[in-house]
């Protein structure tokens, strides 16, 4: 086995410096729930591991001046779960993140790692996309902000430039009577890969939906923002016709693969079914909030 260097810098500049200097031979370590498994299986053999957990900004959960949340890229699902208010404002984001793995894995795994791993079936990402979360990345050329849905570019691939590290997610402030939800369809109930994942974020005014974002996972090479589905919901009372239209938009947005976990026809149909069910949960939560 070749030697592996390990560094755990305490500042972001040091981390970016080390990561960029390794020119592609380095891998970022957050919780390690993907990286260590891939290393053990011999799928990746990094020359350098840059552990980002010692960088304060990457492990912080903060309120933004605008009233939103900024979540460090290395924050684990278990830590986010314990935050006093985050789960009340973004229950769908949290349930997506904490569908991943077992209790032990949740103590390590982060949404940042889930995004950078680039899986189309990443459970925490549809919730962030539906939330309108912005990813902050920093590289040798400085810092930039991009919508989360623009980070993955295909299975295992991201739009991050060489040397760039994901720093945090910024979630916008929430109007009253807003909430979100995430549902997924899998061969069983946990510790498996989604066949379809669906996240819906809504703002309600009485029975009327005034704002919506819809995201689907596992039905295309990347997690999708389904704007047509959101349009079908906005300014409706989430009646059957509107839900049918949104479900049809979800089915139309699907570009899945046939594999042993599900066929194209099945994933396409279930995407619509999940849209309806997720919307119902999000609306119920929004009315209650």
């Amino acid at each position: 086995m070749t030697d592996i260097q390990y560094v755990a810098p305490s500042t972001l500049d040091e981390a970016v410096g080390a990561y960029a200097a390794a020119k592609g031979a380095a891998r970022i370590l957050a919780g390690g729930t993907d990286l260590l498994v891939q290393m053990r299986a011999g799928m990746v053999k990094p020359g350098l591991i840059v552990d980002i957990k010692k960088v304060a900004e990457l492990s912080a959960i903060e309120k933004t001046p605008e009233g939103g949340f900024r979540i460090g890229a290395a924050v684990s699902g278990a830590v986010l779960e314990e935050h006093p208010t985050f789960g009340k404002v973004w229950p769908g984001v949290l349930e997506g993140l904490n569908l991943i793995g077992s209790t032990q894995v949740q103590g390590r795994a982060s949404a940042g790692g889930n995004l950078c791993n680039g899986s189309p079936a990443a459970d925490s990402i549809p919730g962030l996309v539906a939330a309108g979360a912005i990813a902050t990345v920093q590289g040798p050329n400085g810092r930039r902000n991009i919508p989360v849905e623009q980070v993955p570019t295909g299975p295992g691939k991201t739009s991050l430039a060489p040397g760039e590290i994901l720093v945090s997610f910024t979630l916008p402030p929430r109007p009253a009577h807003s909430s979100d939800a995430y549902l997924r369809m899998i061969p069983r109930t946990e510790m498996d890969i989604a066949v379809v994942g669906c996240a819906v974020s809504l703002t309600m005014d009485g029975d009327t939906c005034t704002a919506a974002r819809v995201s689907l996972g596992a039905v295309a090479p990347t997690v999708l923002l389904v704007e047509d589905a959101a349009k079908a919901l906005v300014l409706t009372k989430l009646d059957d016709a509107s839900l049918d239209k949104a479900a049809a938009a979800c089915s139309a947005a699907c570009n899945p693969i046939d594999d042993k976990r599900g066929t194209i026809a099945y994933r396409t149909k279930v995407a619509g079914v999940l849209l309806k069910r997720t919307t119902a949960i999000a609306a119920e939560r929004a009315k209650g909030g």
């Binding site: 061969p187 069983r188 109930t189 946990e190 510790m191 498996d192 890969i193 042993k260 976990r261």
Partner: peptide
Amino acid sequence: LVTGSFMDYTMPRADN
């Protein structure tokens, strides 16, 4: 064997 791990071979669990 395409179901060669617990990712692909669905063992039953208590919540089933």
